[in-house]
């Protein structure tokens, strides 16, 4: 099973990312937890929810949050994909999912995810990270503690620095 960083630890990934569900899905056991692209989810919600495995969706920064925000109760993982590491839309999306929509299940970062981004991602509400396969995950975990001070109000620490000062 592939590995993933979750809660600052390397664990075995319980989820299978199904990039082409219309072709691949019939070969996947019914109790496997799957992550499908947003467009497939939108068209096949009922069928996906009828499976015994849990359902997650993969979105990208280009997707409108409003196009799936109604479904959040049925979704156990949201994978926000970063086609390029410089595309920062996913950071806003994660924050809005947590702070505005109260989404509490897993938000994972997929795609071009680099260790030097993990800490900002965490502060925006991500809690799982699928690094590129050629990356050392154990090493990457060190990066969470590189900067221990944050000025801003964010998902991890809602109080900005001035509200925390003694």
């Amino acid at each position: 099973m592939p590995k993933i960083i979750k809660g600052r630890e390397v664990i075995e990934d319980q989820w299978v990312l199904v990039a082409e569900p219309s072709e691949e899905l019939q070969t996947i056991e019914d109790d496997i937890h799957i992550i499908v692209p947003l467009s497939y989810w939108t068209d096949n919600k009922t069928a996906i929810l009828a499976r015994t495995g849990k359902a997650g969706i993969q979105v990208s920064g280009a997707d409108e949050l409003d196009s799936f925000s109604e479904d959040l109760d049925d979704i156990d993982v949201i994978a926000i994909d970063f086609p390029k590491f410089g595309d920062g839309r996913g950071y806003s999306m994660a924050r809005l999912l947590r702070e505005r929509h109260g989404y509490t299940s897993e938000i994972r970062a997929t795609g071009d995810v680099l260790r030097d981004q993990l800490s900002f991602m965490e502060r925006c509400g991500f809690d799982a990270y699928a690094l590129r396969a050629d990356r050392n995950m154990e090493d990457a975990i060190k990066s969470f503690s590189a900067l221990t001070i944050a000025y801003q109000s964010d998902v991890v620490e809602p109080r900005p620095i001035y509200a925390r000062r003694p």
């Binding site: 595309d87 800490s119 900067l147 801003q152």
Partner: peptide, 14 residues
């Protein structure tokens, strides 16, 4: 300055 320094959401703007 403080608000914008290492703002986690706005490190990868367009």
């Amino acid at each position: 300055r403080q608000w914008s320094t290492f703002h986690p959401e706005f490190a990868y703007l367009p």
